[in-house]
Write a protein that binds this DNA or RNA. Structure first.
Lengths: 87, 87
DNA sequence: TGAAATTTGTGCGTATGTATT
DNA sequence: GAATACATACGCACAAATTTC
């Protein structure tokens, strides 16, 4: 892994938006799935890593992934990780 | 309001149980609804009050009420409160 | 008008437990 | 057993919606 594997800039999640940050994050991830950047079966970064990388709290990531699980876009397996659903 | 409006003892929620505390709390509230102690339309105590009264974290109450909302046993209105659903 | 009180919603940080590798 | 990753639980602070005065 390079020292700087920073490919795409993290979007700025705005706390002052009427849209909660966790929804912004969920939409951001959903968009990456929709665009094909995240393929079916692909594993998402660990939630703590996403928390750090996206500059939001772990709790916020948890809310975002909970939304995406409800939307059936991802599945989460304890101890393994979070994956883009196979279509 | 009396100084001590402590009618029924709070059950002991066990953190070491395989059943998460928030599920135990949800089941406890569901049982009070099923028994008729909490009638349809009745407002539940404020979540922060339940947190204090039941001796669990606000986060835990939030998880419990989220479960009950999913089960359609209660409805929550921001700024108003949480109510037992009208049958 | 609007200010205060009440209640739920969101966001952050931390610690510990459980499951998988 | 160790490392990794999700799950639960606690505490705190501030924002938003509702009601009341």
């Amino acid at each position: 892994m390079p020292y700087h594997d920073h490919v795409s800039d993290s979007p700025e999640f705005k706390a002052d938006s009427p849209t909660p940050v966790y929804v912004q994050v969920a939409d951001y991830i959903a968009a990456r799935i929709a665009s094909g950047e995240l393929q079916p079966g692909a594993r998402l970064p660990a939630e703590r890593d996403m928390s750090r990388d996206l500059g939001v709290a772990y709790d916020t990531i948890r809310r975002a992934t909970a939304l995406l699980r409800e939307r059936k876009l991802i599945v989460t397996v304890v101890g393994k990780g979070t994956y883009v659903v196979e279509r």
